[in-house]
Amino acid sequence: MNKTVNQKAWFLVLPVLVLVAFSAVIPLMTVVNYSVQDTFGNNQFFWAGLEWFREMLASERMWNALSRQLAFSVIILAIEIPLGIYIALNMPKKGFWASFCLVLMSLPLLIPWNVVGTIWQIFGRVDIGLLGYTLDKIGVSYNYTQDFFAAWATLIVMDVWHWTSLVALLAYAGLQSIPDAYYQAAKIDQASRWNVFRFIELPKMAGVLMIAILLRFMDSFMIYTEPFVVTGGGPGNATTFLSIDLVKMAMGQFDLGPAAAFSIMYFLVILLISWVFYTVMTNLDKRDGV
């Protein structure tokens, strides 16, 4: 049966549109207005044209924050995705332990970001934190407030601890949806464990993994609270990611114009990446006939 195409149904999304207008579109328009003006407070604005964009594009500070941000996102994806798949493959498929594992895996996801930050901030302290104290006692030099590598390691391990569960749960859902017949066919063909993974499990998980990659990339690309609580962007600027730098610029220095130009470029990058992921995802779905 042919589906009827009725574009008028789009009017049904009007209430959401109004809501989004107030929470996102109008603030975003204000940011665009700020980005072409200068202000010294008092709600007085002076026309600056494209000056802030020019300044930001030439700003080493922004490019450094962007490269730190990209490095962070790539590193956590490179760890969380394979680790999440590995965990999902090894989780019990049914029974009490399956439910137990699911609940256990969900726990880190329920903790608010700032609490996660606080947990790791204390956990890593050399004087009172279990991790910091233990590392110090066994002779490992670890101080995330002063050492570049320690700060990055703490943030990466924290993010992996917080979010690998999400990848694992999504991958697990993908695995559960594979009918037994596939595995039986593989058994008849005497397929190796690797071949079962490569030709049955991985293709069947591709859709959910795409969602996992998209979610984790976007979240890590916009990360603010956790590094802010743990390192505050330090030592020096070592963990000053885009959003931390942006807040410093907008709220700390009250440079609204440059910060607005910065935000718009940040937003455009996120929009581009989301669009690419979205397109890839919908095309995967179409190919699979979902």
């Binding site: 109008i26 204000t30 665009v32 207005n33 072409v36 003006q37 202000t39 709600n43 604005f45 026309w47």
Partner: peptide
């Protein structure tokens, strides 16, 4: 006024 509108934007 709080949105700081300009003609070009």
């Amino acid at each position: 006024a709080w949105m700081a509108w300009t003609t070009p934007t």
